[in-house]
Structure formats: structure tokens, C-alpha cells
Nucleic acid binder design. Structure first.
Lengths: 126, 126
DNA sequence: AGCGTACTTAGATGATTCTCGAAACAAGGA
DNA sequence: TCCTTGTTTCGAGAATCATCTAAGTACGCT
């Protein structure tokens, strides 16, 4: 459960090259694309937002399901996609399963999109 | 050609709510997801990067194709997906068609992912 | 042990997607 | 006008995806 099946980690392949700075290599694109793909569904985007914005940092699946007109297996499926993309993690505690954001991933994804985003970096892009 | 078929514009539905600040509405998610979906393919991610990082701001399709082991129709298809997602724009000038980034879109997408990204905004996320 | 609730896995189905080859369209040159 | 080059559209096939129902696993309670 807590196990990350095959997280195509953003941390693996020298990520974080701002898209607009220099062309992504095929490897970098191959590493990043699955994450954006995971974000490319309205349900998953909302799930992620519900998890990320939840005070306390973690959410029970039972607090997620009521927001959608979808069956539990479908929600579970989407959570699995997000998990396998390396965006979230989960753990079972007693009866319930809790999900939380994998720290830093959104920041890094954001930094790939926006060259000027890194506050510690000098100006970029001509 | 220059025409944007039905750009599900990020500008339309009150976007830019940082994911982690408050839960996205279904409408917001529905507006954002197609863009992330467009980014969710390695080929498109590289295409976008090639366009965004190109000095001069615009690229001829003929400069894009050689980077991939794909046929011209396939590249054209991916460019169309990016175009319909509202990420890029294009124009034909004589024999060639040029593509460029739609300004501001990447910044906004980045700001959705990273709550702390907006430099003009106070701290976020509790 | 037996039951009920929470969540995931398995299997199926219809819709999308990625890719190609063939053909069409656009522009320039002989 | 015909030919060549650059790019998109069309049509098809294989793969992937979102969703469901049914069944399985995990845990707590009595």
C-alpha cells in the first residue's frame, strides 16, 4: 500500500530544466510527461487539489469520494494513477487510507514550466 | 490556420487558483486539465520545449521534425493538440508555417501548481 | 467467528489516442 | 502549366484509458 509501484520519479532524470531555457531531452520529457499526463484529467486534478489544499496535509479517501459522482473503484483508480506518477503517497491507518502530497513535486513541476519561477535563480530566457 | 478552433482557454474560467490553496472547482479543473493533458506526452513536451526555448520566439515546423523519429503527419497532429489546448499559436508565411508560445500560458500553469510561485502574492498554504 | 464498512483489484466495454500511409492543400519555381 | 517541397487532413489499426459491476482484502466491532 505504502509502496510506490514504479514511480517515474521527477527526481531521477535531471529534471527541473525550465522548458523554455533549453530543449528537453527525450529522457527528461519521458520522465516528466507521465506526471503531466496524470494531471491531465479533471477528476485527478480535483483530487490532487483536494489533497493538497487539505489542512493537516492528509485526507482520507472517504473525504474525497463524496465530491464526485463516481464510484469508489473509479476514484481508487485515479488515486492509483496519481500515486504511480509519483505525485502522492498513501498509508493505511486502521480502517481508513490516507493520502498526502509528495513534497516538492508540484514545485518542481512548476519550475519546469516557468523559467522565472525559481526565486534563487537569476533572470532567464532572452 | 491562425485560427484557434476552440481553445479551452486558461483565461476563461477563473483560473490561476493555486492547486494547494483551495480545491479546484469542477469548472476550473475542466478548463485546466486539457492543457496538462496536452503536456502529458513526451513528444509534445519536447515540441513545446523546442518552441519555447528557440531564440527569436518562433520556429518553423521544418526545424522541429528532424528531432523526432516520427512522420510529418504525426508531428502535425501533436502540434494541433498543443494548439487546440491553447498553448501555442501558428501562422503560415510563404512556404513555411511558424509556431510560437502563447504568451503567459506557461506562467499561469506554473502558478496553478505552485502556491508560492506568485511573487506579488503573500505567503500561502498553511 | 461472523458481520459491516472502507478501500482495492479484476474483468469488461466503449471512447480516445498515437501512429502510419495516402491524399489533399499551399506556395514557389521552371 | 507542371513539378517539387512543406504542411495538414483523412482513414485505419493497435494500444491505452475512464468507467462500471462484481469480487476480494483489511480492519473493527459484537
Amino acid at each position: 500500500m505504502t509502496k510506490q509501484p514504479r514511480a517515474l520519479s521527477i527526481f531521477d532524470a535531471g529534471c527541473c530544466t525550465p522548458l523554455a531555457n533549453e530543449p528537453l531531452t527525450a529522457a527528461q520529457a519521458g520522465s516528466l510527461a507521465p506526471m503531466f499526463k496524470a494531471l491531465g484529467d479533471p477528476v485527478r486534478l480535483r483530487l490532487l487539489s483536494l489533497i493538497a489544499s487539505h489542512s493537516g496535509g492528509e485526507v482520507c479517501v472517504c473525504d474525497l469520494t463524496p465530491w464526485f459522482a463516481l464510484t469508489a473503484p473509479t476514484i481508487s483508480h485515479h488515486l492509483k494513477v496519481l500515486r504511480e506518477a509519483g505525485l502522492i503517497e498513501c498509508e493505511r491507518r486502521g480502517t481508513w487510507v490516507y493520502y498526502w502530497m509528495r513534497p516538492g513535486v508540484l514545485d518542481r513541476l512548476a519550475s519546469v514550466l516557468d523559467a522565472d519561477q525559481l526565486r534563487s535563480t537569476a533572470g532567464a530566457t532572452g
